[in-house]
Amino acid sequence: MQNSPSYAIESNDLSIHYGAFTAVKGVNLKIERLKITAIIGPSGCGKSTLLRSFNRMNDFVPGCHATGELLMQGQNLYSKDIDPVEVRRKIGMVFQKPNPFPKSIYENIAWGARINGFKGNMDELVEQSLRSAALWDEVKDKLQESAYALSGGQQQRLCIARTIAIQPEIILMDEPASALDPISTLRIEELMQELKKNYTILIVTHNMQQAARASDYTAMMMIDDQRAGGVIEFDDTKNIFTRPKDKRTEDYVTGRFG
């Protein structure tokens, strides 16, 4: 089955299970290329689980497995002949808490490139990645210093730089600003608008304003009575936040959920 070229990735009745328990059920999402798609929903609705299934990060969770299809360029990322390492090479990830390596700023970016067999000019790659992450001017004079000396917001942008250094096609962001102050948060959101020129971005956030500000499309997730999460509404972000169709989405975005 071939997915349409305008979609970067497409899920086809994707479900994620922990042992016998289904955490996320029957997700059909078509993620547009070079757009930002936000996944929102109340705590425990499985949005992080869904996001992590996109680069098979859930493989590390014991008992966790997926059913259905996740199609990228016509290839099911969950088929047997696909190596999860290859998936993660194409689909990078930025995590909730900034998690730079306890190494120098330079090495933070170079390491990922090196282990992936990068053969080009490393200095150039480091500079380019830092520039793309809008961090170069702040760190160009202290590349050999520890990444831990940076502020939280800078660390998160370093993590983004590290991710784009390996030139993925899609970047997953798991609540990338939840540990940051408002200014750093806005900076990350601004950066996302820059990044979407070259990358498809999928972001999980429980900050609705962030989803409203930063994304083009929004998927609303909610758990059903079996406690399995699912996408209940997927639409243009502007529709989701001004005239949602589903009552539950309405209740959630107006803060009347629960």
Binding site: F241, T242, R243, E250, V253, T254
Partner: peptide, 8 residues
């Protein structure tokens, strides 16, 4: 920060 119905 009203959304949806509240915003309308």
């Amino acid at each position: 920060q009203p959304m949806a119905h509240d915003l309308r």
